[in-house]
């Protein structure tokens, strides 16, 4: 069976995040901000919760429904932004967005970890929106936070 293209999309690490999502769930208490976002053309949705202290994302959780790409991306995103400042998180989101649109990105000095696995999405334009959903939710969340 030749699924070479598919193997670049559905990397092992992506499937691992899909099957065993990190940071899935919700916080107790009220000490967090939350964002709901959906992809109206396909029905994917995410409920993202962020804890932000002194301009830094200290913790993140999510709930949602969607395909392997959108849910694994959400899992990776929550992992990646923990401990980052709002600026760093937004920068990472921009870099991610460039990466999956097939643009050249400079990841030197950045520990982007598992996120790199989603690079293959760039070969599947129809799936770019799946991958960016969680990141857009995060940007919206921290954007509102930094306005306050």
């Amino acid at each position: 069976m030749s699924f070479n293209n598919l193997d670049t999309l559905y990397r092992q690490v992506i499937m691992d995040h899909y099957k065993n999502p990190r940071n899935r769930g919700t916080f107790d208490g009220e000490d967090y901000l939350s964002v709901d976002m959906n992809n109206p053309t396909c029905g994917d949705r995410i409920h993202l919760q962020l804890q932000v202290e002194d301009g830094k994302v200290t913790d993140a959780r999510f709930e949602g429904e969607g395909c392997s790409i959108s849910m694994s991306s959400a899992s990776m995103m929550t992992q990646a932004i923990k401990g980052k400042t709002i600026d760093e998180a937004v920068k990472l989101s921009n870099l991610f967005s460039d990466m999956i649109q097939g643009k050249k990105v400079d990841t030197e000095g950045l520990n982007i970890g598992d996120i790199q696995a989603l690079e293959g999405v760039s070969k599947f334009p129809a799936r770019v929106k799946c991958a960016t959903l969680a990141w857009k939710a995060m940007e919206k969340g921290v954007g509102e936070e930094s306005k306050e």
Binding site: F3, Y10, C42, G66, S68, F124
Partner: peptide, 28 residues
Amino acid sequence: IHPHDVATVLDQEGIAVRAGHHCAQPLM
């Protein structure tokens, strides 16, 4: 297996199907 993932695999085989809510969210 999520229908988007199904549709992507089928597309690799040259098969075009629709995946999503089909503009019928109440029915979903």
